[in-house]
Amino acid sequence: MSENTHTQEHPGYGLYIVVWAGLVGLTTITVALAGFNLVGLTVVTALAIAIVKSLLVTNYFMHVKTDSAVFKVFIFVCIAIFLVVIILTFFDLTYRFPLK
């Protein structure tokens, strides 16, 4: 029964706004960094920042941090399968088109 009444304490407005500020800050950083030539690291940094941003969104806006643990497991499985698939695809690509 208790599950439906959402008895957990409700997150405050303040936390959301802080998270949002963080997201906007990270966006500024990633745009700014794109101006520099980071040699091979451009993609890596851009993706790293994007991952941090999406972690913020899932954990706070989507409440995964405080929600039932089953969702964390689900998300993990979903991401794991996606990564495995993309890695296996690249075993074909990287050997078929070796980098010069």
Partner: peptide, 15 residues
């Protein structure tokens, strides 16, 4: 939103 968070750097920020 999350999907856009990835689309944005991948399309607009390759330099």
């Amino acid at each position: 939103d999350i999907i856009w968070i990835f689309l944005f750097p991948l399309f607009y920020l390759i330099h």
